[in-house]
């Protein structure tokens, strides 16, 4: 789902052409396109750095957490999941909709982590660190565009 598919779906349901308001919304989406792509490429190229710096900061704040317990598998899966979330945010930024993030990253994820005995509080903290590190790399304008996606994710993980 993106802004475009949403607009088409609602127009199709009422058997009408796209209204001017919808066209305007899509036009805005197009105009913001270069910005979205810029954000996406920043996140893509700096993924490793974001994840590493973010985890360091996370371990400073929450030293007692499964990923910092010395178990290499836990550490690696923690890093993997963080990279995974950065990727989902890239998808969401590009389509301009939370749908990819919600469908894969948020629905059921809380239960998954609970069953893996990962404390949700720490997870939220890790995502916050991720957000901070990612936003520090961008201009204020780009940061304000991408921040809501991180916030949505954090909100969805709140215990």
């Amino acid at each position: 789902m993106s802004i475009i598919t949403r607009a088409i779906a609602s127009a199709d349901r009422e058997a009408r052409y796209l209204s001017n308001g919808e066209l305007q919304a899509i036009r805005d989406f197009f105009e913001a396109g270069p910005q979205r792509l810029r954000i996406a490429s920043i996140l893509t190229e700096n993924e490793l750095q974001i994840v590493q710096t973010g985890s360091q900061r996370f371990w400073q704040r929450c030293p007692y957490t499964p990923s910092n317990s010395g178990n290499p598998t836990f550490r690696a899966s923690c890093m993997r999941d963080q990279g995974w979330y950065v990727r989902l945010i890239v998808y969401s930024v590009i389509v301009g909709d939370i749908e990819p993030l919600q469908r894969i990253g948020v629905n059921g994820a809380k239960e998954m982590y609970t069953s893996l005995e990962i404390p949700l509080r720490n997870l939220v903290e890790a995502l916050r660190c991720l957000k901070e590190v990612a936003l520090e790399m961008m201009t204020v304008e780009d940061a304000s565009e991408v921040a809501p996606y991180f916030d949505y994710l954090i909100q969805g993980m709140m215990p």
Partner: peptide, 15 residues
């Protein structure tokens, strides 16, 4: 990404 960029830049025309 290039494909997306060209799509976004052609947006005004498409509209």
């Amino acid at each position: 990404l290039d494909e997306l960029a060209s799509y976004f830049s052609s947006g005004a025309k498409l509209m």
